[in-house]
Nucleic acid binder design. Structure first.
Lengths: 154, 154
DNA sequence: TGGATAAGTTCGCTTTTTAAATCCAGAGTC
DNA sequence: GACTCTGGATTTAAAAAGCGAACTTATCCA
């Protein structure tokens, strides 16, 4: 049962909505899976390919898009006795997606996990108790979902 | 500059990862745009179509998928003097994606907004100061991103 | 009976995805 | 230098998905 009042259109047209822009960049299965792997430390072309089992053409294109969008940084690494090769690491722009992907992980744990213990969970450093995605006010105090209000144009 | 240590593979294989499962359901441009519109109150087929400007075939298929996945509920509505028609509203499963989409909106505001005032922002009811997506511990206190630790199996 | 309307579906056509093979550049080897 | 190995990326052709327009269906209203 949705408490959201009926609307014929969203209040912000998709063209000027930063959520829609974000969706244009990361709203793609392979792109999201690449970011997931990158957040776990995967950096190299063949490692991404082995992890995702996706066509190399697609991986190549998605990596290029992510570099152009500024989420990944392409630089060289060199193992001793090997030639230099590119590696793809998250920029600060890409790293700042981590809370969103962790939130989505926990959403998946809650709704898709079929009651099993999640294979990965998240805690605060030095603590054993779980953390969760939520909203906080300026002072860092939690705001319950039913307390959230949208405000248009600044 | 990424502080994430190099890994050849992610610690949880995509097949058993709830994040990967979540991406399979919502990791699609049109699907995400449908959920965005639904969170703003759009419910009807033609309203979604006008909002998204997507082919009706695509919309039809995505709505069916979202209903099957349990994120949307299909029921009938009836305006007085009109025949009954289906409407699509968010289930509690779909509603619980709201923090993630608001978080993504704020990520877009920060990185894609080109310094402009965001067209929409979020506040706590009865307050004017902004709220933001974050992590909290069991007591509802904020946990900074660098304090987050991943724990495997358990 | 005819028209208006909302919610899809059908139908050709175009674009993207996929999987496999191929290309390419440079380090190590002879 | 020539030869080979290898990680990274491109080419190619078939399969899948996306696209826009027209069409169908069902019901309310005149």
């Amino acid at each position: 049962m949705s408490q959201i009042p009926l609307a014929r259109r969203s209040p912000v047209p998709p063209e000027s909505c930063n959520l829609a822009k974000a969706i244009d960049i990361i709203g793609d299965r392979w792109t999201l899976l690449i970011l997931r792997a990158a957040l776990y430390g995967v950096r190299r072309f063949d490692d991404f390919q082995a992890e995702l089992s996706c066509p190399r053409t697609v991986l190549s294109g998605r990596l290029k898009n992510l570099v152009e969008a500024g989420l990944l940084t392409k630089r060289s690494y060199k193992s001793p006795g090997k030639r230099a090769r590119p590696e793809y690491t998250l920029s600060s722009m890409g790293l700042s997606l981590r809370p969103i992907l962790i939130g989505l992980t926990q959403w998946g744990d809650a709704w898709l996990g079929q009651g099993e213990t999640p294979p990965i969970s998240f805690t605060k450093a030095g603590s054993k108790s779980a953390i969760r995605a939520a909203f906080v006010d300026l002072e860092g105090r939690e705001v319950r979902p039913d307390q959230i209000r949208a405000v248009l144009r600044g």
